[in-house]
């Protein structure tokens, strides 16, 4: 049996170290994939090198539920013995996209201590991977070369795996393929509402019609264009002056004559209300009107200041009777 040389022992030791580190990295990754946020420990290909000492490596606390657009940060603090130094030019380039993981930002801080320099590296990634189903993705492993020393040392940052959750299910397809026969929803009966609406509209219409019927001057409905409606309209247009009293009387007399069919005089008032009972309630007023009219027309006695107003009021009341409202 040949005793290995020192170089061989060193190579074996390095291999063992790498194996252990890989195993630890794999375990850490597995734990992370299992949903546990375990801070990863950075490992280097040359971990045994005394020039590089990883102080801490912080990976994202959450390794599941990562979706497109999410930012993931890794923070690595490493102490590098002089004369080695971490060259900024060796850092991965911002904007590099590897398998859908884009390096969004890179920051490097350094602090010098006695014979070494402590570097704090911040790597900020953004996920742009597209997948229609949950998938394991990784923040890529980084290899950062050191310079300044006689040897070519490389600081390796291991990959960090995480579960990528798609925003939409992978089975999303045409909506038509997902259509299922629907049971028609039970309809809420609107018939009662329609009935109430119709009733309300009917009442509104009746009310409006009633208002029109009472107040309108024109002939839109039966009895609306009656003799007294016309008389009322004519008298209303007359100026309330003494000169127009005879004209106002004329309009009202003509209305009585038209309704009665023959000329009506004071002696015929009872016959008038008997033949037209809708005016019965105004019998006394009609008799008073004829007495007043006779005084004005046949004795020359002028009416008072409100003579035409009085005639207008009487004409309106007669119009109401004519329209069967009184």
């Amino acid at each position: 049996m040949t005793i290995p040389s020192r170089t061989t022992w060193t190579a074996l030791l390095r291999l063992l170290t790498l194996t252990v580190l890989f195993a630890l990295g794999w375990l850490a990754s597995g734990a992370a994939l299992a949903g546990q946020a375990v801070p990863a420990v950075a490992s280097t290909e040359h971990a045994a090198d005394a020039e590089i000492r990883v102080l801490e490596l912080h990976n994202p606390k959450r390794s599941t539920g990562i979706q497109i657009g999410d930012y993931l940060e890794r923070r690595l603090q490493v102490e590098i013995a002089q004369p080695y130094q971490l060259a900024i030019s060796a850092l991965p380039l911002k904007g590099t996209n590897r398998h859908g993981i884009e390096l969004a930002d890179v920051r490097l801080e350094k602090t010098s201590v006695s014979a070494s320099t402590i570097y704090t590296l911040l790597l900020r990634y953004q996920v742009f991977a597209a997948s229609t189903s949950p998938a394991i993705l990784q923040l890529p492993a980084e290899r950062i070369a050191l310079n300044g020393g006689p040897r070519a040392l490389v600081l390796e940052v291991p990959a960090w795996h995480f579960w990528f959750s798609p925003l939409a299910a992978g089975t999303v397809g045409l909506a038509k393929t997902n259509l299922q026969p629907q049971v028609p929803p039970a309809l809420i009966s609107l018939s009662k509402h329609y009935q109430r609406l119709a009733l309300g509209l009917l009442c509104l219409l009746a009310g409006l019609t009633g208002l029109v019927y009472v107040h309108a001057d024109r002939r839109w409905l039966p009895f609306m264009g009656g003799a007294f409606a016309q008389a009322y309209r004519h008298i209303r247009r007359l100026p309330p002056t003494q000169q127009h009293e005879a004209q106002a009387l004329l309009h009202l007399h003509q209305a009585f004559d038209r309704v009665h069919g023959v000329s009506l005089f004071a002696a015929g008032v009872d016959d008038f209300v008997a033949a037209h009972p809708q005016f019965l309630s105004l019998r006394e007023d009609i008799a008073a009107f004829y007495a007043q009219s006779s005084q004005r027309l046949f004795t020359g006695q002028a009416g008072d200041a409100h003579f035409i107003d009085g005639l207008l009021t009487l004409a309106r009341r007669l119009r109401h009777c004519e329209r069967r409202l009184a």
Binding site: A246, L249, L250, H253, Q254, V262, S263, L297
Partner: peptide, 10 residues
């Protein structure tokens, strides 16, 4: 005549 002639008529 009495039934048809009105007063006032104009």
């Amino acid at each position: 005549i009495l039934a048809h002639i009105a007063v006032p008529a104009r």
